[in-house]
Simulated assay, not measured.
Amino acid sequence: MNLLVIGFGYSAQRFVDLYGSGFARVTGTVRGADKRAQLARYELDLFDGTAPTAATLATAAEADVVLISAPPGPGDDPALTGFGDAVTNGRARRVVYLSTVGVYGDHQGAWIDEDTPLAPEHDRVQARVRVEEDWRSRIGDRLAVLRLGGIYGPGRNALVELRAGRARRIVKPGQVFNRIHVDDIASAIMGAIRREAGGAWNIVDDEPAPPQDVIAYAASLMGIAPPPEQPLDSVELSPMAKSFYASNRRIRNTRAKQDLGLVFAYPTYRAGLDALWTAGEGRS
């Protein structure tokens, strides 16, 4: 099978590193020449969100599997606008779209699953819902939507943030998040590719937890004092960070385990951080 990755970012690159050898050809797109130079060991084309080249469109038409990791823009989705026709009318038997659990909105800490109605509260996640629906209307059961929790893994985790002095223990009483290790995302992508039918699945860990607890646990592994707790209303946050704290929910992953055969390498943030610490993360 040929694999095309639209948006060769953190999660997509990890998938290719772990599973790329199972494909006859792996190609991808990045937005800029600098990024392509940094990732010179991969076969990557430039796609800046406008019009793909004729060669890139031909590659899309010949792809058996398409992984879409690029986020939508404020207007039309660049991936859909640029590649929709080539993918819809090409060889692709499976399109995997990486979305977000933010599409469910706020549930005040209640448990939810894939049957919970979508209720996106911000432009960024409203765009995600539109893109999910647009791809589904085009390709139907060939579409697999993976709604991801907070992504962490090598180079992107609480250990690294603590070592760099960027970690903060921001507290909103009752607030919890689900997370997901990037290796478990890769496993879920492979499960979605192997599955005959499409659908939408929550790709999150087993244990939604307060964000300040994750920082404290990472600090305990490092043998350092955790940063002091800060009430949410006392700190300055970016609009994106504010949107994370605006929604509070506990997310079930049962259906992904059943349908995709997902077996977590890191079912909790503790298991993930333990492995990252052992691998040397946050030590220098």
Rank of each mutant, 00 (worst) to 15 (best):
W201S: 01
D205H: 00
P78R: 06
L18S: 12
W277C: 12
S220L: 06
F15M: 05
E43L: 06
F23K: 10
M190E: 08
F83M: 13
K172T: 11
T53Y: 05
G84D: 07
W111R: 10
Y266L: 10
R168L: 07
G165Q: 11
N89I: 06
R25T: 15
G223I: 12
G20R: 03
N157L: 00
V129E: 03
M190T: 00
Q13A: 09
I251E: 00
R128Y: 13
A33Q: 14
I224L: 07
D64Q: 13
E196D: 10
E62Q: 15
F47Y: 15
V95R: 02
M240G: 05
V95C: 11
P211N: 09
R169Y: 04
M222R: 05
I151Y: 02
V176K: 00
E43Y: 03
G153Y: 00
A54V: 11
V160Y: 00
V160Q: 13
A86L: 03
P154Q: 14
T100A: 11
L162Y: 05
D17M: 10
A60M: 10
A216R: 06
P211S: 12
N157H: 02
R166H: 15
T100H: 03
A192W: 00
S234E: 15
A40Q: 03
P173G: 11
E43C: 12
M222N: 06
R142C: 09
A197C: 11
V26W: 00
R14P: 00
T254L: 13
E132G: 12
G155V: 08
A70Y: 03
G102V: 03
I170D: 01
H107M: 10
A167Y: 03
V160T: 14
T100Y: 01
D123R: 02
R168G: 03
L118Y: 12
V66C: 10
A54M: 07
E62K: 14
A24R: 13
L18I: 11
V182R: 01
F244Y: 13
R270C: 03
R194S: 13
Y152P: 05
G84R: 09
A279K: 15
L232R: 04
L146F: 04
F83T: 11
I180F: 04
A79N: 06
V101P: 01
F23Y: 15
P231L: 04
P154E: 11
I6N: 11
N178F: 01
F83D: 08
E229L: 08
Q38K: 15
G32H: 07
Q108S: 15
M1A: 05
V263E: 06
I215S: 05
I112Y: 06
N2A: 12
V96M: 08
A188T: 04
V66N: 09
G155Q: 04
D77Q: 08
P231T: 04
R147N: 02
E132I: 07
G73S: 07
Q230Y: 04
K35Y: 00
E229F: 02
T56Q: 09
G140N: 09
